[in-house]
Amino acid sequence: MTLLLQQLLNGFSLGAIYALIALGYTMVYGTLQLINFAHGEVYMMGAFAALYLAKVSGVADNPTIPGAIVVMLGAMAFCAVLGMTIERVAYRPLRNSSRLNMLITAIGVSLLLQNLGLLMFGALQDFPSLLPEARWTVSGVMVRSNDLVIFGVTATLMVVLTWIVERTQLGRAMRAVSHSRDAAALMGIPADRIVVATFAIGSVLAGAAAVLVAMDKHTIRPDMGMTFGLKAFVAAVLGGIGSVPGAVAGGLLLGLAETLVSGYVSSTFRDAIAFLLLILILLYKPSGLFGKHVPEKV
């Protein structure tokens, strides 16, 4: 029982991170039908931006809550700018070309950023604590302060995101563009600006996720966006790509599945379960848990 509770806690913690990153994939897919493979690298760059900020601001030597907040907001802002730049430079010129061209460009941007990271930062760097860390044992289950931070930050961001999407003019325009970019444009919605906003919001979430992971693992690497990005992409597909609640559900499901498998079976199969789930969902419910089947328009 204790083991189960422990695994559930760990699973939700991991799943919350997947969900944050998955939201970026799913939102961009919703507006552009593009799988933005560079999203994982935005997340990676966010971690290095946070490291730089932590060192420059002195938070690395003197961890405090306000300091951690400043570093996190800084990394989120950096990611927003990076995401918008990628959209402007790499994707917008291809807006009217085939989806395959955009997809290949996305993979290219991803590789470019990864190798740029390797060149600039080396293979691996230590990440300092941004907050005083603590751990407690509650009836046999170890609860770390980092888990609470992850839950708190993720929940806050998701509430804000839901509010933006459901209740604001920007969110309404985003949903309109995701239904039909052409029809939205003909109603006077500046689709390009909405797409930029979508990239910015998705990247902000990736930046937050990067800081949470870096704080938790204490090492960051230029290839960290590969595995995490790919898993988060799987989470987005599990939930139904294009669906915001789907990305959250998919992320949590994947996190739980991974920790339960490594807890009860073997951590060898930890990564395999993600792709096993992906294969199952593609076989039995290709549109994902929350996705609607949209017939291809000719």
């Binding site: 309404r172 949903r175 239904h179 039909s180 029809a183 939205a184 919605i189």
Partner: peptide, 15 residues
């Protein structure tokens, strides 16, 4: 915009 409510469709027009 199929998933949006009736009034939201009109609000998009007003955006």
């Amino acid at each position: 915009f199929a998933g949006l409510s009736v009034i939201e469709n009109v609000k998009v027009g007003m955006h």
